[in-house]
Every structure is written in C-alpha cells, then in structure tokens.
C-alpha cells in the first residue's frame, strides 16, 4: 500500500491530488507545517513526500534535507513557482522526482504515479543483475 504525506500551508491546494490518489486506493495524509511533517516522518514510513514551498517555518530544500535524514528511500515532489533551471539548482542532489505548480491538478497525480511505476520497473529489472568477473 502506497502512503503519501502532503505538506502545505493550505490543505485545499491538494484537493485534486488527494482525490486522484484516493481513487487509486492510495492513502494520503496532510500536515500544515514543516515541523508537523518532520514529526510524522519520524513516527511513520511514507513512500512519497509532496511539499509546497509556501510553508511558514522552513524552506522546501531544508525540509527535503531533513526528510532524507529520516528516510532517503522515500521519493519527493515539490510544489514551486521557481523557473525550471532555478528549481534544478535549488534542489540539486536531493533526488526530487518532479516540480509541480502551486495548484496541482488530477493529471499531476497520475503523472506522479506513472513515474513511480517507472522507477519500480527499473528496480525490478535489476533484481537479476549480478557482477561479471573480468579477472
């Protein structure tokens, strides 16, 4: 069962995303601050962390970094108004799956799920790969 933590100042911005996830039998939880998110991530394991940059108590990058210390295996998505190149520069090295607008739509949820499936397929393909001796 996939579990998702949604974090933003206003819950309503995730209305369409949460509905689409629910339609796909995916559980999503919402919290309204970075501190609440860190607390949730300390207590529970999530598969995906979706963060809006409008949080009052921490930048998006700071929060993603904090989350990595809890669980680096969890994927992340950031809602941001930054231009693409600035976004890449800001979040470089944090392995963010994708950038979404501050008002994500249903199709964005489907894109996230498709992307997660793609990564899962790559992981499954490598299950049989072992090193080849060359000495």
């Amino acid at each position: 069962m996939t579990t998702i933590l949604l974090t933003s100042k206003e819950r309503s911005i995730f209305k369409e995303l949460a509905a689409q996830f629910s339609d796909n039998q995916i559980i999503s939880e919402w919290v309204g601050s970075a501190q609440e998110a860190i607390s949730e991530l300390t207590d529970k394991k999530f598969d995906l962390f979706i963060v809006s940059e409008d949080l009052p108590d921490m930048t998006g990058r700071q929060l993603i970094e904090e989350a990595l210390f809890k669980n680096a295996m969890m994927n992340s998505v950031v809602l941001s108004q930054l231009p693409h190149d600035k976004f890449h520069e800001t979040y470089e090295g944090l392995g963010v799956l994708m950038q979404l607008s501050l008002n994500p739509e249903k199709q964005d949820a489907q894109n996230i799920l498709d992307y997660l499936n793609r990564i899962e397929q790559i992981q499954q393909q490598m299950g049989t790969i072992k090193g080849e001796s060359n000495r």
């Binding site: 992340s76 392995g95 072992k130």
Partner: peptide, 25 residues
C-alpha cells in the same frame, strides 16, 4: 577478484536505483 556491474537507466529522482543495485550486490 575484480568484476564489473552494469549500471541501470538513470531517471530524474531515481537515485535510489544504484543504491539498491549495489546493496543487492
């Protein structure tokens, strides 16, 4: 012993793929 292991396709956000690959090996 020296051996080689083919890397996997790299996709944005897929940086746990090599982590798991090396862990499994």
């Amino acid at each position: 012993e020296v051996s080689t292991l083919q890397n996997q396709e790299h996709v944005q956000g897929g940086c746990m793929v090599p982590v798991n690959l090396l862990s499994e090996n």
